[in-house]
């Protein structure tokens, strides 16, 4: 192995690997499937290493997420189509999309339960809304970075984010209301 390659690979490791949890988080929320998310994350890193010499060195996260998004799209060409793929549905009856098991009685505690329900509700958001929300709330992207990675104007990012939050909020209130009446 040439020394230069070795150095590049070391640099890649230092810059990109600490982002693995974030990459996985995004992939998991976008695919809603643990195996697919893991595959996509792995493929992203292999592709990223291959293209690493073309990385300008400014900020690795948007660069890495652009590759991740391309990987996700190549696995499902219609994934990021702007048309909502499904309606938010009735929040009262949530079919598990996320794949979590029902909580067992011992851990039927508010916090774990909140997390499970929120994951389900996020999973039900149309992809482009879900994407904006996850990039903002779980990947700490700025509006400008979201616009850059998703290839839409900042105004579109803002309206998608607002829609995502509104739908999530509405679905959450509906669940709470249901919980109170049962």
């Amino acid at each position: 192995m040439a020394e230069a390659d070795q150095r590049e690979s070391e640099r890649f490791r230092k810059l990109a690997l600490p982002l693995l949890d974030e990459v996985y988080t995004f992939a998991r929320y976008l695919t809603r499937n643990a195996d697919e998310a893991e595959d996509a994350a792995q493929e992203t890193y292999l592709r990223a290493l291959r293209y690493f010499s073309g990385f300008s060195g400014e900020s690795i996260k948007p660069w890495l997420f652009t590759i991740l998004r391309n990987v996700l799209r190549s696995r499902d060409p219609r994934r990021f189509d702007p048309l909502p793929e499904n309606d938010a549905g009735e929040a009262g009856q949530v079919d598990p999309l996320w794949g979590d098991a029902e909580p067992d009685p011992e851990t039927h505690l508010a916090r774990a339960d909140d997390a499970r329900q929120l994951r389900e509700l996020i999973a039900r958001l149309p992809t482009v809304y879900r994407e904006a929300l996850v990039l903002k709330e779980f990947n700490d992207f700025s509006y400008r970075q979201i616009a850059e990675v998703t290839g839409v104007p900042i105004g579109t990012v803002m309206s998608r984010l607002a829609r995502a939050r509104e739908e999530l909020q509405t679905a959450w209130f509906a669940l709470e209301k249901k919980a109170k009446t049962t």
Binding site: L20, E38, A41, Q42, L46, L49, D114, A115
Partner: peptide, 20 residues
């Protein structure tokens, strides 16, 4: 709510194996 996820344990190793 603990919604940020952690990559599965084996994933980092598999990626590392692919690197020099």
């Amino acid at each position: 709510a603990g919604l940020r996820l952690q990559a599965p344990a084996g994933l980092a190793e598999r990626i590392l194996q692919a690197l020099p």
